[in-house]
């Protein structure tokens, strides 16, 4: 049983990175189909981070962002958070609704709903790819959407990991449009108990 994320070997981390790759590859394709735009993803990053470092990945604890959060249950428990800057959320909503880009526009109900739906599709595609690869079942909750400081949106999720340790395992994927703009960050945070099952399914639990 993995009690501490810091006990993971390099091989195990590479295997986790690979599932991030497969999941995000499928999610990027789904997003590209929806928006009719070329969507790329960066090489996934896997990190074992102290809690305060997680908001830094999206620009700092007081950065205003949109967060779409899912609890994942099934064969293994995890949390997924799709985070984008407010500016990029407007951009993504316009892309989805087929509108020309406007500058300085704020997020209305319509835009929020479009972004939540994008988050939903990205997460579901990501989890489907994971499920196929590992032969496991993952069930996402309905999305919860928030617009606020990155630290504030993340801390309640991170607190769940605080009961068992001081670190969190983060699989991060960045989605980009035409290789330039980072649209959003997808974070998968498996719970410590869930890691054993995932690593066994990947054949690297030793």
């Amino acid at each position: 049983m993995i009690e501490d994320f810091r006990d993971l070997s390099g091989l195990q981390l590479d295997a986790l990175k690979e599932i991030g790759n497969i999941g995000a590859g499928n999610a990027a394709t789904a997003l590209a189909t929806m928006t009719q735009a070329r969507i790329d993803m960066s090489v996934p990053q896997v990190g074992i981070l102290p809690f305060h470092m997680v908001p830094e990945l999206v620009g700092g604890a007081d950065m205003p962002v949109v967060g779409i959060y899912f609890q994942v249950t099934g064969s293994a428990n995890a949390n997924i958070m799709f985070i984008l800057s407010v500016e990029k959320a407007v951009f993504l909503a316009e892309l989805l609704m087929g509108l020309p880009p406007s500058y300085g526009k704020t997020l209305g109900d319509m835009e929020m709903s479009a972004v939540a739906e994008a988050g939903n599709i990205i997460s579901a595609t990501y989890l489907n790819a994971l499920a196929m690869f590992t032969q496991m079942t993952f069930i996402p909750s309905v999305p919860a959407v928030g617009v606020d400081m990155a630290g504030a949106l993340l801390d309640g999720v991170l607190a769940q990991y605080g009961e068992v340790g001081d670190y969190v395992l983060v699989l991060e994927n960045k989605f980009k449009k035409e290789e330039l703009d980072v649209i959003g960050h997808l974070f998968l945070l498996p719970e410590p108990g869930a890691l054993d099952q995932i690593l066994t399914a990947l054949g690297v639990n030793f």
Partner: peptide, 14 residues
Amino acid sequence: AQMFNTGNSDIMKI
């Protein structure tokens, strides 16, 4: 604060 309004009260009442 309670940032997300989801069904899972346990986490969200933290």
